[in-house]
């Protein structure tokens, strides 16, 4: 009789521990880790421009595979460390800036502002090694790119 109640007690204890581990594990997963996002303002052009820094080769290859321009110059670069649920702003030019929010499950939201007005907001899961690009034409023979990547 005593052995039976001891077994029952142990079983209940194991069940409670397992339940506690499951709940705490889920809570940890639901938390957003701090992230570091690299934002680059890039000029895409078909003409070579001396004195300007070219983008890293991985970015150039990716952009050149999709877009017609062959030269990509990095005009500005900002590194943003964003805490859980926080939002950081980076000014990329005289009139434009981006706001990057760190959301749950590795998802980020990027808002592009120009002359004080929000143009677009994009939300997606940004993995390490992948890129989010906001782009547009600037003149007849060039384009601007805002390339965001997540640092490891």
């Amino acid at each position: 009789m005593i052995a039976l109640s001891l077994n029952n007690l142990i079983s209940r204890f194991i069940f409670l521990v397992a339940l506690l581990l499951f709940v705490s594990g889920g809570f940890v997963v639901a938390q957003a880790d701090p992230i570091t996002v690299q934002a680059r303002l890039v000029l895409g052009t078909s003409k070579e421009q001396k004195g300007k820094t070219e983008v890293p080769d991985t970015i150039r290859k990716r952009l050149a595979k999709v877009f017609k321009w062959m030269k990509y110059y990095e005009l500005r670069s900002r590194r943003l460390s964003i805490g859980d649920g926080a939002t950081k702003t980076a000014k990329l030019s005289k009139t434009s800036k981006i706001e990057v929010s760190n959301r749950k499950n590795g998802k980020i939201a990027v808002s592009l502002f120009s002359e004080g007005k929000m143009l677009v907001q994009k939300s997606q899961t940004l993995k390490s090694g992948s890129y989010m690009v906001l782009a547009g034409g600037s003149g007849t023979d060039s384009a601007w790119f805002i390339v965001l990547s997540k640092n490891k």
């Binding site: 303002l41 990716r62 120009s114 002359e115 906001l134 034409g137 003149g139």
Partner: peptide
């Protein structure tokens, strides 16, 4: 590995 949003907008660089 790359998502693109192309805007018909000229950004001041």
């Amino acid at each position: 590995a790359m998502s693109v949003v192309w805007l018909d907008y000229s950004l001041d660089l």
